[in-house]
Design a protein around this nucleic acid. Sequence first.
DNA 1: GCGATCAGAT
DNA 2: CACATCTGATCGC
Length: 695
Amino acid sequence: MGQSIPGIPGGGLGGEANPPGLTGAMSCFQGQMAEYPNISIDRFDRENLKARAYFLSHCHKDHMKGLRAPALKRRLECSLKVYLYCSPVTKELLLTSPKYRFWETRIKEEIVVTLLPAGHCPGSVMFLFQGDQGTVLYTGDFRLAKGEAARMELLHYGGRVKDIQSVYLDTTFCDPKFHQIPSRGECLSGVVELVRSWITRSPYHVVWLNCKAAYGYEYLFTNLSEEFGLQVHVDKLDMFRNMPDILHHLTTDRSTQIHACRHPKAEEYFQWNRLPCGITSRNRIPLHTISIKPSTMWFGERTRKTNVIVRTGESSYRACFSFHSSYSEIKDFLSYICPVNAYPNVIPLGTTMDKVIEILKPLCRSSQSTEPKYKPLGKLKRARTIHLDSEEEEEDEHDLFDDPLPVPLRRKVPNQRTLHPKVFQMTAVSQNQPEKLGQSTGCNRAESMQTSLWANFIDCEESNSESEEESQIPASSQGDPCPVTHHQQKVDAEVPQWEVFFKRNDEITDDGLENFPSSTEGGGSQSPKLFTDSDGESTHISSQNSSQSTHISEQGSQGWDSQPDTVLLSFQERNSGDMTSLNKGGYKPRIKENLPASQMEQSVLCLKDSSSEDVTTVPSVGEPTTVSGGKHIPQERRLPALSTNADSQSSSDFEIPSTPEAELPKREHLQYLYEKLAAGESIVLDKRKGSLIDT
DNA sequence: GCGATCAGAT
DNA sequence: CACATCTGATCGC
C-alpha cells in the first residue's frame, strides 16, 4: 500500500493533517475510487459531476455533499442514463425531503454491486464492487462488531472471504485512543435500565432522549418502546411512514413517558423541567424529568469495567452510543478482509493521513511479505445454519461452504461467470419488477424497508422460534404486506399492541418485563449500587455484570428511590464479537440487539457485461451474479418472508421480496388510521377483509 | 436570493 | 473528548 491515495481525483486533501480548529473528523474521501473512477460514492460535487453512476451509502448530510446542487441537477437532466444507487431505505428517507425529490425517477435500488449491511444507521450499506479491476469495498460509515464480517455471506466466496483489492474504509475512530467502545447491545441495555429505573416510579416520571437530528437512533427508540410498551415521542415521523416497524414505536402524541423530541432551546427548556415539545405536566401534575444524551464514549484497552451510563448532573445522564466502529473493531474488520490496499475515508481529528495509513497498512496483504499471493483468507462463519433447503444450490457454490447454506442463499442464478465484466455498463435499466418503483408499491416497499431496519439493528431470533409458521412473520412482522392489520391480528406476538401504545399510561404494566427478575414495580427492591469511577468527575453507573448479560446484578441499598443514579450498568468486558450479552440464551428476548452481520441485510447487485445493454438486478443473497438476458429473478420476489424469516440469521431487507398481489393500504388511509389511533380512538379490525374499520 | 464556506454551538 | 446537524455571518454570483 502506498503512502498516499492513488488516483483520487479532486485531489484536495492529499496526505495532509487536519487543519487546526476543526470540530470533527474530516472526510478525505473525495467520492471516487481509483479502480472505478467513473462512479462516485457519497460525494456529488466537483469531479463527481462527471460520474456515470452515483452511490449513496446512507442518508447522512455529510455523505450527501452536492446531491441537491444545481450543477448535478443539470447533469441529470442532460444525462438520462445517470442514476443514483442506494438501498431501499435510504431511497425512502431521501425522497421524504422535498429538496431531494427530484431524484425520484433516477434512483436505482439494485444493480451491479453487492450491498452489505453497514450497521451505521437505517439503510446504511457498504458497496462491494466487483469487476475486472478487482473487488473493491467501500464501507461508507459503518459499525460492525468483531466477527460480524465473518458472518456476511456475501463477503465470501467458496467459503472464504473474497479477494479484496482495496477497501475504502470508515476510519472515524481509527486511533488507538478509541480502542474500545461498548457494543450496541451493552449500550442499549444501559439505557433500558436507566429508563426503567426512572419511569417506573410514577406515570409522571418521564425521560428525554437528547438525540441529535440524524438517523441512527431508531433502534434505541424501537427497543425502548418495545421494552416498556410506550411509544417514543418525536417531532416528525413521516419519513418512516412506510417503515411500520419503526413507525409503530413512535408517536407525535406528547403524553408518553419517553421523549426524543427536539427544540433549539431544548437544553434550556430542560433546566426548567420542560420537555422540548413544551409540556411540563400531565393532568396538572408536574413531570419529573431526566435527560439521557447518547454520546460516544470509549475506553482504554485496559479498562476492565466500563460504564455505559454516566451521570453528568442532577437529572442528566450520558449514555454510550456509537455509530462508528471502534479502533479495535476497525482492525478486526480490516484484518479479516485483508485487502491489498486500504484507504481511509476519514482522518480523525488530531491525527494525520500518514498515521492512519500506518495503522491500516500492517493489516493489509501487501505488507505481509511472507505470504503467498492468495493466502487462506478468513473463513465464513455460520452463526447458525438452517438446513431446510430442499433445492440444491448451484454446484460451484454449494460444496464450497462447509456448512449447509442458509435459506437465503438458495438462489437460482444461471451464469456466475458473467460476473467479471470487461466494462462497467452503468446504463439505466428497467427494473426486473416494476414494483420496485413508484407509488404502487407502498406496502411492498415498506416491507423491505422495515426489514432492513430491523436487519440493521435487531435480532429477530425469538420470533423465529415462536411463530407458529416458521416460514413467516417473525418479530417484526416482516413479510406481512399489511403491517397494521398484522399487528391487530397477532396481538400475542411480541410486537406490542397498538392499544398498549396508544392508551394513556396511567400505570406501568409489567408487560415486557417478565424477563427481568430484578425488576419490580414502582418501589424499590432494586439493589443498585453506586459506583464511582476513578475519574471522579461524574457519577458513573456500573455493575458487576454477570458473565451472561448486562443487567442489574447487585443488591443495593437505598438510593433507588431518590435518583436513578443507582442503576447498575456496565458492559461486558470481553465480548467475543458476535453476540453481545443481551440475547444470549434468549435471556432477554424483548430487547433486540444489533445483530450479527449475517442477519443483516445483504443484497446483490450485478454488474453488467458490456455485451448486454442493461444492468441487471439480483435482489437476493448469494454470490453476485449477472443474470443473463437481464431477466428477473422471480423466486425471491414471490417468497416473501420465507427466506428471510425462516432464519433470522439471514434476514435481508433488500432481499425481502415484495408481495405483488398484496393489497396495499393507501397512504392516506394509513395516515388517517394512525391519527385516529394516536388520538386514542379505537379501530376495529375486519378480519375477513383484513382491513381496518374505524369506529 | 441562493449557495458555498466557515465558525460556533449543541 | 472528536457521532451529525443546524445556525448565523460572510462572500460571491
